[in-house]
Write a protein that binds this DNA or RNA. Structure first.
Lengths: 221, 221
DNA sequence: CTTAATTGTTAAGCAAGCTTAACTTTACCA
DNA sequence: TGGTAAAGTTAAGCTTGCTTAACAATTAAG
């Protein structure tokens, strides 16, 4: 049976699988969920018994097709709520994540479909993340790269922001960066891996910590 | 600290206090929450320690002013969600209760205030129940009585429906009764305490079970 | 005013989901 | 290749919120 806790595990595992290789390590998930790693081992066994996860001791955790489906459902709920709270209730970019993190576990599929419908079956949430469709498919944007990997003198469009840390969102608000902002890479500084960008006719420097959490798309060479 | 479970206890206690006398009995609450009565005794002690409830063994449970405030907050969340789901997302009269029952525990005060604002600070939910204000006050309708206590030959307006049992709502939908429907009492049948009413130029008979859960206001003698 | 029925309480125990502490496996580096 | 640090696992124990079973108080009825 699926509980709130299990939904969060599946979501966390999904994130770490998609970013890295095909399996998620205990400690990464523990860190992500702010939970001891022994709890992860425990839960891995339970999820494995339920067929949501492939788990071998000391070998990491992998989602089964069944588990991936379940994870995508939760992510779908989360991202639809985020967009809904922002578009309809006027919540702020930095406020929606935490609210959605709770609501995602307590909305019936029926309600979620109504929200989806109300929003016109959107493809992306307010942070630029794709919203999984009811059938499990994931909308994609071609040629997305990390800002950290962008090249000097090229122009890019900001299309995705990691929403895990609300501090980042606040930082972006302060700087004035938004989704779809255009920026040009002026310089990459080897010393601290920071990047100097031209944005809105101003020159700002973004640290590695920032550029590792922003995704862009090339718009002009 | 307030948990989901405690919120539900406070809500349940509040309901049974307002309908009956000044204190709620263990078994009524147990019944309302579908939980064993030993669990109620247990929780009564905990809530008492937190100052939310006045509890003396074998003497029933009473909300403290602090506890009542907490209960009203939960009820406010519930009723605002109900109205929001119905007005904005188009959910049905019979669908909103169960969804709201979950969402009420996972919405920040901030979010609730946004919903309240969006709806224009409404006074009543879709079932005609008053929505407690942010300051704890409760909108009132004068001269509300149970349909079971209505008098023959008078005309009444249906203004409140108990939403605890979704079967009742489905029954009303089938019959065609809605909030603000006008009805005239044709006869009260002593044998089974049912009531015969004229509504929409049709004559229907409502059982005691139904009339005990509908509230009306006299509109014409 | 006593007694049976009803109602309420206590005690013991269970499941979920965590923790910390002790232990095991793996991976890496000299 | 062997030894150690890092990563992962197991075991024991805690809290919350429930259960059932046994026991206690209250109430209602003759």
């Amino acid at each position: 049976m699926s509980t709130i806790s299990k939904e969060n595990y599946l979501k966390a595992i999904f994130c770490h699988i998609s970013e890295m290789e095909n399996n998620a390590s205990t400690s990464r998930i523990a860190n992500h969920l702010s939970i001891s790693s022994s709890a992860i081992s425990d839960m891995a066994k339970k999820l494995s018994k339920e067929g949501l996860v492939k788990y071998e001791k000391y070998k990491g955790i992998m989602l089964t097709p069944h588990g991936e489906k379940a994870a995508l459902k939760v992510i779908r709920r989360h991202r639809l709520w985020e967009l809904f709270l922002m578009n309809v209730l006027g919540l702020d970019w930095s406020e929606v994540h935490d609210e959605a993190e709770k609501l995602e576990h307590y909305s019936s599929e029926f309600l979620i479909d109504r929200i989806d419908e109300y929003l016109g079956h959107p493809d992306f949430d307010p942070h630029g993340h794709p919203i999984p469709k009811k059938n499990g498919s994931i909308p994609e944007i071609p040629n997305v790269i990390l800002l950290a990997e962008a090249e000097t003198n090229n122009k890019y469009e900001l299309i995705r922001v990691n929403d895990k840390e609300s501090e980042l969102i606040n930082f972006l608000k302060k700087v004035g960066l938004k989704l779809n902002s255009k920026l040009e890479i002026v310089d990459k500084l080897d010393y601290d891996n920071s990047i100097s960008v031209m944005f809105n006719k101003k020159n700002i420097t973004l640290s590695k910590k920032v550029t590792d959490n922003l995704f862009v798309r090339l718009i002009e060479e």
